[in-house]
């Protein structure tokens, strides 16, 4: 995902402090947005890293008084779209679970504690599958409107389309999501 980067200008304490504050205050939200968009932990990490590196490079272009989160969500949205375009046509295969690095022998990381797995499986699986069944455009708009609670105008700015497009994508996304949830087998 990493593209060749231009050399940085010499850093200033303000630039470093800006990045520090941005990561502290918005790192978690950005990572979760990337996770919801990509449905993939590795991609979410790459997207978050790349987005903050771009924030650092372009820090002077941030307008005080505007929403930082909208800005970084726009960066993540564009990076994700570009990445999918780049991958398009390439054969992709899910790596089986037991191919994952085995450094957690015995002690598993918190994110995959059995209790959490259980809760996630019980509560979230139908929703997770349904979300994965939406198109990228639908998922973007649905997450921004219903989870992040942005206005149609803000979503249009983040995604780069008209308000009318946001509205119609959202309507279709909700219709499709409901259909996908209802089509899943009910737990016995």
């Amino acid at each position: 995902m990493a593209a060749p980067r231009k050399p940085f200008d010499p850093p200033s304490p303000q630039q470093t402090a800006f990045l520090e504050r941005a990561i502290n205050e918005y790192g978690r939200a950005t990572y979760n947005y990337a996770l919801r968009l990509s449905h993939n932990e590795a991609d979410a990490r790459d997207l978050t890293q790349e987005a903050f590196i771009r924030v650092y490079r372009a820090w002077r272009s941030f307008q005080p008084g505007t929403s930082f989160l909208s800005w970084i969500y726009r960066i993540v949205t564009n990076l994700h779209r570009d990445e999918l375009r780049r991958r398009k046509g390439r054969y992709q295969e899910e790596i089986p679970e037991d191919n994952a690095p085995q450094q957690f022998k015995g002690a598993r990381p918190l994110a995959t504690e059995p209790i959490e797995e259980l809760v996630d499986r019980q509560l979230s699986e139908p929703m997770s599958k349904a979300l994965a069944g939406l198109s990228l455009e639908q998922r973007q708009v649905l997450i921004l409107a219903d989870v992040e609670e942005y206005s149609y105008q803000e979503i249009a700015d983040i995604v780069g389309c008209s308000i009318g497009t946001v509205r119609s994508r959202l309507h279709r996304a909700r219709h499709q999501l409901r259909r996908l949830i209802e089509s899943q087998p009910k737990p016995s």
């Binding site: 978690r28 996770l35 994110a111 509560l123």
Partner: peptide
Amino acid sequence: LRSFARSTEREL
């Protein structure tokens, strides 16, 4: 959707 988002929220 919001409950799902909350239940799958992760630390950075």
